[in-house]
Design a protein around this nucleic acid. Structure first.
Length: 300
DNA sequence: CGATTTTGACCAGCGC
DNA sequence: GCGCTGGTCAAAATCG
């Protein structure tokens, strides 16, 4: 399966931080299982991908839950505000793409997603995906439990399916990675790979055994794939905000950062939001798009 | 129409 | 015991 690793890797020392996070989680749950924490620096690639889910691997994952993160820098209020705005009643008159973008943004802000392996029935492999508290561009994926089935044949996986989620194990020479089959355009983007850091937390493994590696990424070492800072990089780019909005592709954080047509006025409601770490992006987005477009928001 | 996502409800662990 | 929080369930909604 995947014993291989992306070869050209720098090591990033984030183990202590990762460990503390995982230990905190472990202390909450009585059943302690082996966990593999993967940090993914999302970037431009992620923004171009279908959605901003967790990094893709050879397994297929099914989301079974989502919870707001306590203590997240992206406040609970903002999270609910997004959900509120994304409700059918309010966004009914928005275009589908705008709704998608809103939903994407909301779901990626302050919540943790819970995924089960859907590759095989009965597989207990799970993973949690959340945004790093200190770096919004960083995704933290925690793999728990193990797969009880072989890794699906990579070659049989449709390439587009692979891109349902941002890649993390994208290694140019990964023997089984579908990257090999990428068109030239895609290969060029490998130069802007997301930053990935993997850490295995060996705790009391209550499960009998692991037949297969939990993640296609090797758990035995830290991995770092360098990538340009997606925020600063994209901030420098001049995007047409309207075209972004009308684009069928969900927006990424970096893309949202380009909504730079805030109005100095508007209501205090969004002014308050701007005091929050990430909500400023959102408020700008809302100001420049929702209000400018005069979307009727009629309480039912 | 099956697969997947969304989302409110529920349950259990933990701290006070 | 109570409230908070993390994790899961399951019905409804959505997607392809």
């Amino acid at each position: 399966m995947d014993g291989s690793l992306p070869p050209k890797l720098d090591t990033e020392v984030t183990e202590s931080e990762l460990k503390s996070e995982t230990e905190t989680q472990a202390s909450k749950r009585r059943k302690v299982v082996q966990k593999t924490v993967v940090r993914v620096k999302t970037g431009e690639n992620a923004g171009k991908l279908k959605n901003e889910g967790p990094p893709s691997d050879f397994w297929s994952w099914r989301k079974y839950g989502q919870k707001p993160i306590k203590g997240s820098p992206y406040p609970r209020f903002t999270f609910f505000l997004f959900n509120f705005l994304c409700s059918k009643e309010l966004v009914l008159q928005l275009s589908l793409s705008i709704r998608r973008n809103l939903k994407f943004l909301g779901s990626s802000m302050a919540c943790r997603g819970y995924y089960k392996c859907s590759t095989s029935k009965g597989c207990s492999a799970k993973k949690q995906v959340e945004r790093c508290r200190t770096d919004a561009s960083m995704l933290i994926i925690t793999y728990t439990s193990s797969h009880n089935h072989p890794c699906p044949d990579v070659h049989s996986i449709n390439l587009t399916q692979q891109f349902k989620e941002p890649e993390i194990q994208e290694s140019e020479d990964h023997p089984t990675t579908p990257k090999q089959e990428q068109p030239q355009e895609e290969k060029e983007e490998t130069q802007n790979q997301p930053t990935v850091t993997v850490t295995t937390i060996d705790e009391d493994v209550s499960e009998d055994q692991f037949h297969y590696l939990q993640s296609p990424i090797s758990c035995t070492q830290d991995i770092m794939i360098n990538q340009e800072d997606p925020f600063t990089e994209n901030l420098e780019k001049d995007h047409d905000t309207l075209s972004l909005l009308l684009d069928e592709e969900p927006l990424s954080y970096p893309n949202l950062m380009t909504f730079s047509t805030p109005k100095s006025e508007e209501n205090d409601f969004f002014d308050e939001l701007e005091e929050l770490p990430t909500s400023s992006v959102f408020s700008s987005f809302m100001r420049s798009n929702l209000f400018d477009e005069r979307i009727p928001v009629v309480p039912s």
